[in-house]
């Protein structure tokens, strides 16, 4: 019997993998992909709650998350392009203009 806890556990695992990726990787493109993975894990939570509560509002939320993720990916990757043109790197440890 498939319960909501299966899906919640899976999405928690995927979210934590995304967090580990954001913390440990230095390539800004891979970090953005890990953010996408975290958004996807949250989407899975929304969909499973929508199904097990019998309420379709969760689907609308996932729709909005997808729109925001598309906007985030477009702007983020444009920033990465501008960053690479100016500093020839995508390593987040070497982009520290705002640090000091």
């Amino acid at each position: 019997m498939l319960t909501i806890n299966h899906f919640l556990a899976l999405s928690a695992i995927l979210f934590v993998i995304g967090v580990v990726g954001v913390l440990t990787r230095r390539n800004v493109i891979v970090i953005m992909m890990c953010i996408e993975l975290m958004l996807n894990a949250v989407n899975l939570t929304f969909i499973s709650f929508a199904y097990y509560l019998g309420d379709m509002t969760g689907h609308v939320f996932v729709f909005m998350v997808m729109a925001v993720a598309a906007a985030e990916a477009a702007v983020g990757l444009a920033i990465v392009m501008a960053l690479f043109r100016n500093r020839e790197t995508v390593d987040v440890d070497r982009v520290s203009l705002l640090k000091h």
């Binding site: 498939l2 899906f7 989407n43 969909i47 199904y51 689907h59 729709f63």
Partner: peptide
């Protein structure tokens, strides 16, 4: 998983 959870539109959009 979305298909398993009956979210056919979201599965296609995914």
């Amino acid at each position: 998983f979305y298909v398993l959870l009956n979210a056919h539109l979201i599965a296609a959009l995914q």
